[in-house]
């Protein structure tokens, strides 16, 4: 500031003292961005969000609208509109099963991985030896490609040489064809999902724990509050905002993460491991039935949006602990 208000420091062409210039701004003259300064804030702000909004709207809102449009196309030639795809969907046992599977899958994997993640975070938040290693060990599976994780567990679940059967046998449990049996295939996939997700959510909980003030821990220690009580009455409620965030991400993931089905089961046996998005993929691409797939996509999107709204409402009531 001092130099620019000094006339001697300004070049001969700019002999006017900046302070006297209307809207005096010593940088504006020199910068090639000078014309930009005259743009009003609202236009400027729109220019900033425009590139991101074009992408976000272009690849979600626009396709959402065209998805609804496609789902309403009646099969056959011509472009008549009707609910044929939805009628077909309601009567399609494969669709119903994939939806049911997905609901069970989400209802189990999300709470379990969140609970494990919270436990992990509380355990590795304290000053313990090898904390860095422990955090890394818990977090690494989250960084792996899902299809690689699927390949690992595919090997473990193999009926003959698979590690899980080897262990099962050594403790007296009979061998099983984990991925070949309709009653065990979905739980087997859930294990992979929980293993994969827990470490990622642990990081969010660790971040959440850093925002809890240490005085609260000290107060509990002084009063001789037990650890479980401290966790239930202090830590858990204060982590609620984190839980809201992770549960939304977790539910979304449980509906859109189907990569491991490609490697492990292809939806089988007998559609016992067919999830909604995998079913949509099958209908849209290998079966070349994009309009029918669009109708199922409408259902998937509605579920995702409805769940997000419900979760935000539900947690809103509880977060007032803060």
């Amino acid at each position: 500031m001092a130099t620019s208000s000094d006339p001697a420091a300004v070049g001969p062409a700019e002999a006017v003292t900046p302070e006297v210039t209307p809207g005096g701004d010593p940088w504006a003259r020199r910068s090639f961005l000078a014309p930009l300064r005259r743009v009003p804030n609202s236009v400027f702000a729109w220019a900033l969000i425009l590139p991101a909004m074009v992408i976000l709207l272009g690849f979600s809102v626009v396709p959402m609208i065209t998805t609804v449009w496609a789902s309403l196309q009646e099969p056959g030639i011509g472009d008549s509109i009707g609910p044929a795809n939805y009628e077909r969907m309601i009567n399609d046992p494969v669709f119903r099963q994939s939806l049911r599977n997905n609901l069970v899958f989400s209802l189990v994997t999300v709470p379990v991985s969140l609970a494990i993640a919270m436990l992990m975070a509380v355990l590795v938040d304290r000053e313990i030896r090898a904390r860095g290693f422990l955090r890394m060990a818990l977090f690494t599976p989250a960084m792996l490609p899902v299809i690689a994780a699927a390949a690992i567990f595919l090997a473990f679940y193999q009926p003959n040489f698979g590690l899980i059967n080897v262990i099962a046998q050594s403790i007296g449990v009979p061998r099983q064809n984990w991925l070949g049996d309709p009653s065990t295939v979905l739980p087997s996939l859930m294990v992979v999902m929980i293993w994969k997700e827990a470490g990622f959510f642990m990081l969010f909980y660790l971040a959440g724990l850093q925002t809890i003030s240490p005085e609260l821990n000290e107060a509990s220690t002084l009063e001789g509050t037990g650890r479980w009580t401290h966790f239930r009455r202090v830590t858990f409620p204060l982590l609620m905002p984190t839980t809201l965030f992770t549960s939304i991400v977790g539910v979304a993931n449980s509906f859109k993460q189907v990569d491991f089905i490609f490697v492990m089961t292809q939806g089988g046996p007998n559609n016992a491991s067919n999830l909604l998005l995998y079913n949509i993929y099958l209908q849209a691409f290998p079966n070349r039935n994009p309009d029918y797939a669009a109708a199922m996509t409408v259902v998937l999107v509605s579920i995702l949006v409805a769940l997000a709204v419900i979760q935000i409402r539900m947690f809103d009531r509880r977060i007032h602990y803060r």
Binding site: F59, S60, A70, L277, A284, T297, L300
Partner: peptide, 15 residues
């Protein structure tokens, strides 16, 4: 946050 491009697989492919 909820609707990722891969959820709208078919239409995004077309686009």
């Amino acid at each position: 946050l909820m609707i990722f491009p891969e959820v709208l697989l078919g239409e995004n492919f077309r686009l």
